[in-house]
Amino acid sequence: MMTHTDPQSDWGLPGWTYDNDRFFREEQDRIFRPSWQIVCHLNDIPKAGDFHTLDYIGESVVVVRGKDGGVRAFTNVCRHRGARLLDGPAGHCGKGGGRIVCPYHAWTYDLEGRLIGVPMRETYPALEMDKQGLVKVEVEVWRGFVFVRLEGDGPSVAEMMAPYEHEVAHYRFEDLQPFGRVTLRPRTVNWKNISDNYSDGLHIPVAHPGLTRLFGKGYGVEAAPWVDKMWGQLIDEPSNNPSERIYQGILPDVPHLPADRKRLWTYFKLWPNF
C-alpha cells in the first residue's frame, strides 16, 4: 500500500532546527550573511561623522554619514591589527567628525573609508595606503531606513517591499525623527521563534486578549514572497478595560493618512527577521 505525505499537514519545522549549533552556522552563512539587516534611520545620523554600529553573527558593521551627505558602511575593524574602530551603538567620530581614528595605533581613515594617516609611516616601506582602506559593506537606504548586507546579490529592500509600497507610502517614513535612545534587550531565543510568533494570528485571542477586544475578530495575516503583513482595524466601541479605553481615546489623528488607515494597526515583517 502506497502512502502519500501531505506537505501541508506538518505543524512546522522540525524542533531540532531551533537548537542545533551546526544548523545555526549554516543559517548564518546562507541566510544572514546574504540578507539585509536594519541599522538605523538617516535622521539618527544627521551630521557628517555621525555613526551607528551593528554587531551580529560575529561581525561588526558601522554606518557613517559622509561630508557629502551620503551614507557608507564598513566593517568596524582597523586594517592594521584588527582593532575595533568605533565603540558603542552610536556616536560621532573624530574631532570635527572628519576622521575615524583607530584607538590602538592611531591609523586614520576619512569618512569615505580611505586610509589617510599612519604614524611613523616610514617604518612601513611596503605599505600601499590606497589599498588598505576600510572594507566596504553594501548599504541601501529605503524610505529613510539604512540597511546593510554582508554579501550576496539578492533583491534589494525596495524590491522585497514592492508588494506593499502603495501602503507604506502613506506613512512618510523618511520624515521620522528619533524620539529617544533605543535600548537593546538581547534574548537567547532562536530567530525562527520570533518569526513564527509574528506570523501567527491564532495566538492573538489567547495570549493578547486586550488586542482582541481592541480589534475584534479583524486581525489579519498574509504573506508575500519576502514580507509578511499583519493588521487590525481598531473598533469604535469603547472597551470596558480602562487602559484600553484610554488608548482608544488618545490615539492621535494623523492628518496625512487616508481615512481607512487612521485607526489601522499594521506590521510588516521583512525576511528574514525585521
Rank of each mutant, 00 (worst) to 15 (best):
Q233P: 00
G220D: 14
A169H: 05
E244Y: 09
Q177A: 05
T212N: 09
K136L: 00
S199T: 13
V141L: 00
P155K: 13
G154M: 06
I204Q: 04
Y247T: 08
G144Q: 02
P255K: 12
H170D: 14
P209R: 02
V139G: 00
F145K: 03
N240T: 10
Y219Q: 02
E244S: 04
S243A: 13
T212G: 08
D236P: 01
V137I: 13
V157N: 12
Q177W: 01
R213Q: 12
G210L: 06
Q132I: 02
S239R: 08
A207P: 00
L134Q: 07
E222R: 13
G218R: 11
D196S: 12
E151F: 01
N241V: 07
P258Y: 03
G218Q: 06
M230Y: 00
S156Y: 05
D153G: 08
L214T: 06
H208W: 09
W142K: 01
D228C: 00
V148L: 04
L251S: 14
A224H: 11
P163R: 11
A224V: 03
Y198I: 13
F179P: 02
H166M: 02
V135D: 07
N197Q: 14
L202E: 04
K217N: 15
L134N: 03
L234D: 01
D196V: 06
S156T: 15
L176W: 05
G180P: 08
W191D: 14
S239M: 09
L251F: 15
P252G: 10
G218W: 02
G249C: 07
P252M: 11
P205D: 04
L214A: 11
Y171S: 12
L134V: 07
K229F: 04
E244F: 05
E167L: 13
N190Y: 10
E159T: 04
V254N: 13
D196C: 03
L234G: 03
T212K: 11
R213S: 12
P155E: 09
R172M: 06
R149Y: 09
G201M: 05
E167G: 01
F179T: 08
V148K: 08
Y219P: 00
A158E: 14
N240V: 05
S195G: 11
V146G: 10
P238K: 05
E159F: 01
I194L: 15
E174A: 15
N190E: 13
P178S: 09
F173A: 12
R245C: 03
S199W: 07
H256E: 15
A259N: 08
G152K: 11
R172I: 04
R245G: 03
D236E: 15
M161Y: 02
L214S: 11
A158C: 03
